[in-house]
Nucleic acid binder design. Structure first.
Length: 471
DNA sequence: TTTTGAGTTGTTCGA
DNA sequence: GTCGAACAACTCAAA
């Protein structure tokens, strides 16, 4: 019997899966494979939360595959060695997988392609995780877009492909390729996690999606900005693992849009544009790989960042003395998730108040976020620090106090994560230092910097770049 | 080639 | 308290 491997990566689902669908139509025995990359154990940029969620999702995938009559082969090691080895072991004549776009995964896939080609094994990398990939949406002059709005216009002007059918059940289960099971336990990589793991897997993702479509989507534009309201989809970790397909989501949103009144249509538009942001930054990372190590705008490589370790540590643990910033960071540390509004606030605070390099924040986020995605995370940080595509104007500096008052008006979110402040009323909880007598009795740190002092310093730091550029 | 319009998410100041 | 303007100049994308 001929065999074909489907290599699961960030596509841990049976529905709407391009490469899996193609592989299953070849009339060969399908051998589903997942590889626990050894790089995951290196630890520095692989957070325990993300790894644990990934493993939960793989476990769920294994279960779903078994129900359909397949046995997921799980191996631990280096995929550029294991994939060719598995081909020899199973006698597979082809390997299917869905494309990834990070520069380092592209290089790795290229190495695998070369090895498989010398073995006479086909290697198919198909577009799946995005609707439109790096070279598909270009300006009239054939270059990638670097400004979001025109990009999104071009994106929206195209017809979105329909979701694909699910993997059909295996009919000749007797020939299913068997293999030893590797335990899907984050401990095998020596990671420690001190908080519960979000439920993973395709079934869970679809459940979340349905409940978002049934409620929060109708108030999305307004409520998505408030951390104490459950107004967002919470799908980011699932999207990252491919527990849900992007075609499914976009088609559902477009359907909801046509079925609703103009007000609700606006909510659908806003959510859709968040999905387009995801593709925008995926495309940016792929077309401008230098953003991995540099500012998108290279002239900002000359910015004179601070190197204050104490400030950085205070930011990490949520001890800056700014309530909304500390609440956000503690929430991240204790749950592996942070609301998008808060990501902007803490990013602005790190870069524009503490004047620390955005790359430090980028790396910390990748260590802690369950949904940490290289493209979106890098894009977000570069946007916040004003060094990226279509970046925030240099004078757009968030005031952490005002942001707290605006987006957590009753201090509900702050009270939840900064217990030292929970007794304060909705006014004082945003500026506990205002009343020195009260502040001295609280077990809460004084602000480590003064926003009013840091703002002009930040403006000067950026202005120095302009001077040196023009001179 | 040149020109034109526009650009995720804000803050501050003064009327 | 509320509102509008200034913050500055630059680059991108399309006409």
């Amino acid at each position: 019997m001929k065999r074909i491997i489907h290599w699961f990566r960030r596509d841990l689902r049976l529905h709407d899966n391009t490469a899996l669908h193609e592989a299953s139509r070849r009339g060969a025995e399908l051998v589903p494979v997942f590889i626990l990359e050894e790089a995951l154990s290196a630890g520095v940029d692989v957070g325990a939360a993300r790894l644990a969620f990934l493993l939960k999702s793989v476990e769920a995938l294994r279960l779903e595959l078994r129900r359909a009559g397949y046995n997921l082969v799980v191996r631990k090691g280096k995929s550029d060695e294991l994939i060719p080895a598995l081909c020899r072991e199973t006698g597979a004549s082809a390997v299917f997988c869905n494309k990834r776009y990070e520069p380092y995964t592209v290089r790795r896939d290229e190495r695998i392609a070369q090895k498989l080609s010398t073995m006479g094994v086909e290697f198919h990398r198909l577009k799946d995780s995005v609707i439109w990939e790096n070279r598909e949406i270009l300006t009239q002059s054939g270059t990638p877009y670097t400004v979001f709005t025109p990009y999104s216009k071009a994106w929206k002007s195209r017809a979105v492909p329909a979701p694909l059918p699910s993997l059909p059940p295996e009919t000749q289960s007797s020939t299913v390729y068997q293999s030893d099971e590797v335990p899907l336990d984050p401990w095998i990589f020596g990671h420690r996690l001190n908080h519960p793991v979000t439920a993973g897997g395709e079934v869970e993702a679809l459940k979340l999606w349905q409940s978002f479509l049934a409620g929060p989507i109708h108030h999305y534009e307004e409520q998505r900005n408030f951390p104490s309201i459950n107004g967002t989809s919470k799908l980011s970790p699932h999207l990252r693992c491919g527990n849900i397909g992007i075609r499914r989501m976009v088609i559902d949103i477009l359907k909801a849009r046509t079925a609703s009144n103009p007000m609700q249509a606006k909510n659908c538009d806003v959510f859709l544009s968040e999905l387009i942001w995801r593709e925008f930054y995926t495309q940016i990372l792929s077309n401008f790989p230098h953003v991995m190590r540099h500012n998108f705008r290279r002239e900002y490589d000359a910015l004179a960042w601070s190197d204050n370790e104490e400030h950085f540590q205070a930011w990490c643990v949520g001890q800056t003395g700014y309530p909304i910033v500390d609440a956000a960071m503690r929430c991240l540390n204790q749950t592996g998730w942070m609301h998008n509004r808060l990501r902007m606030i803490v990013a602005m605070f790190l870069t524009k108040d503490l004047l620390l390099h955005w790359q430090r924040g980028e790396r910390y986020f990748m260590q802690k976020l369950t949904d940490g995605d290289m493209a979106a995370n890098n894009g977000g940080w570069q946007w916040s620090s004003g060094t990226g595509t279509d970046a925030a104007p240099y004078f757009r500096i968030f005031n952490p106090t005002t942001q707290g008052q605006k987006f957590d008006p009753q201090g509900k979110f702050i009270g939840q994560w900064v217990p030292e402040l929970v007794s304060l009323d909705e006014k004082m909880i945003h500026l506990p230092w205002e009343n020195p007598l009260l502040a001295s009795r609280l077990k809460y740190t004084q602000p480590i910097v003064l926003h009013e002092k840091q703002r002009p310093k930040c403006l000067a730091m950026y202005a120095a770049i302009k001077v040196s550029k023009s001179s």
